[in-house]
């Protein structure tokens, strides 16, 4: 596969390490009353879609950016790539 790195352009997927569902970015509030359940769900429950999937890739043999890659699990077509840093900030993680 080729991943179109937002800063570095098209790179071979061999340069990357795969982590998994981008929902790992949405870490629950650790101080909430339901934190134990929230963390359980966050860590262990995943959707497994046949189709578009947002996932985390780490450019380990490159610039060490974590990327959020939107990939179709059926065709491997990649429709969107962005820096996880930007994505996470948009999800409100910098507050």
């Amino acid at each position: 596969m080729i991943i179109n790195h937002p800063l570095l352009g098209p790179r071979d997927a061999q340069e990357f390490v795969y982590l998994g569902d981008a929902s790992l970015i949405d870490r629950p509030d650790a101080s909430g009353e339901t934190a134990l359940d929230d963390f359980h769900d966050y860590l262990y429950l995943r959707d497994n879609p046949a189709g578009s999937h947002k996932e985390l890739w780490f450019h380990e043999q490159g610039d060490r950016s974590w990327l959020v890659v939107t990939r179709d699990t059926r065709t491997h077509e990649i429709t969107h790539v962005e820096l996880a840093f930007e994505y996470a900030k948009r999800r409100g993680r910098d507050k």
Binding site: L19, L24, R27, F58, S65, L83, F85, A88, K89, D94
Partner: peptide, 11 residues
């Protein structure tokens, strides 16, 4: 650590 820095605490 990079995951924590970029994805969890980007601020």
């Amino acid at each position: 650590m990079e995951f924590c820095r970029q994805c969890l605490w980007p601020g």
